[in-house]
Design a protein around this nucleic acid. Structure first.
Lengths: 191, 191
DNA sequence: ACCCGCATGTAAGTCGTTACATGATTCT
DNA sequence: AGAATCATGTAACGACTTACATGCGGGT
């Protein structure tokens, strides 16, 4: 079973979905740190059905094309549960911007500053978006977030990761831009 | 030109290296956020030479097999410089552990706690290793780190990214483990 | 008439991993 | 004699991206 397979099962464990629905949820990286195109999703759904992890039923719609709605099976759910707590094999982190930083000593000062300022902005925007979601969740789901065995908690947990990831990234970009610009890094909090 | 090509050029811009040397430097993720196996490096070197970005000379060694030592060309250096400040196309972040968090509501409490504790430890160990390097660099390279156009600064910059990345990741894992365990997250600093 | 959203697929190509393959020299 | 390090490659496979392909219905 591939990681994509588990990503799909993770979504289907919450609600029944069509391939198209899955595509929508995996387009943005909101909610979970994985993504896939429809060209990868459809064949994977076929494989999951082959293995008995999901089943589908055709739903006829008026004024819309028919769709195949997938449902997770008991076997799929068992496999998913087992996978959740299995330690992931550590995979090498690849980050092109950090790789660029490794050769930044060759670059033009101004152009390099611009690059890291732009990236800082990108991550701060993403952060602001996530913070908005967080506020909403903490208000709307106050009850659900008290128990860690609710899907709401799990969604909140991945969002927390998104927030700390973006904050960290934006902070590093700011430090880079400040350093290259020559102002000396602006200190915000400790490190 | 692939990102791996630029990773190789980035190393060759600092010193002449053989394919084997490159393999060593790209094995661990220390110093830069990219990695590759030798099976990918050798063909890439051939392509780079084909494109005129590098040249090689055979160095005969006593008591060791001969080796091909690669050198970056003027053209290779120009291309590398241009690439450094070109904004990277944003690629989707894939993180299996965060994906697991999305389905953690299905998991056994104890097993899930153990998973995130273990991962917290992994990242804290990596962090400690990086912090050691940082102390060494700040002592040894005090002079060089004042100018951002030194390779030492660039190495230091990627190390800073490594440090903040690992700290962020470890912190999130701790929050996860604490939350699932039921103690309620331990507050360390703000956030 | 044309584009957009819904809906589902296949094909070709790239990037990366694992495995296969060889050969020299040094250390135990 | 066998394992470990140095040194360089190729082959097979899997994951992911981009492009190709089709068709309905609704809005402009």
């Amino acid at each position: 079973m591939t990681t994509l397979g588990y990503a799909i099962l993770g979504l289907l464990s919450r609600e029944d979905l069509s391939g198209y629905d899955l595509k929508q949820r995996m387009a943005g990286r909101v909610g979970y740190f994985w993504s896939a195109r429809h060209s990868q999703i459809y064949p994977e759904l076929a494989r999951l059905e082959d293995g008995g992890y999901v089943t589908h039923s055709v739903v006829e719609q008026r004024e819309r094309p028919d769709k195949k709605v997938y449902e997770i099976t008991a076997r799929g759910l068992d496999d998913l549960k087992e996978w959740v707590t299995r330690p992931p094999v550590p995979r090498p982190t690849r980050d092109e911007l950090t790789l660029k930083a490794y050769s930044v000593w060759l670059a033009d000062r101004e152009e390099a500053t611009r690059l890291f300022r732009e990236e800082e902005l990108r991550h701060e925007e993403q952060l602001a978006h996530y913070e908005g979601l967080r506020t909403w969740m903490e208000g709307e789901w106050r009850e659900d977030l008290t128990s860690t065995n609710s899907p709401e908690f799990a969604s909140y947990a991945t969002l927390r990761r998104g927030i700390s990831y973006e904050r960290e990234y934006a902070g590093w970009c700011r430090w880079m831009a400040d350093s290259i610009e020559g102002r000396g890094p602006t200190r915000v909090g400790k490190e």
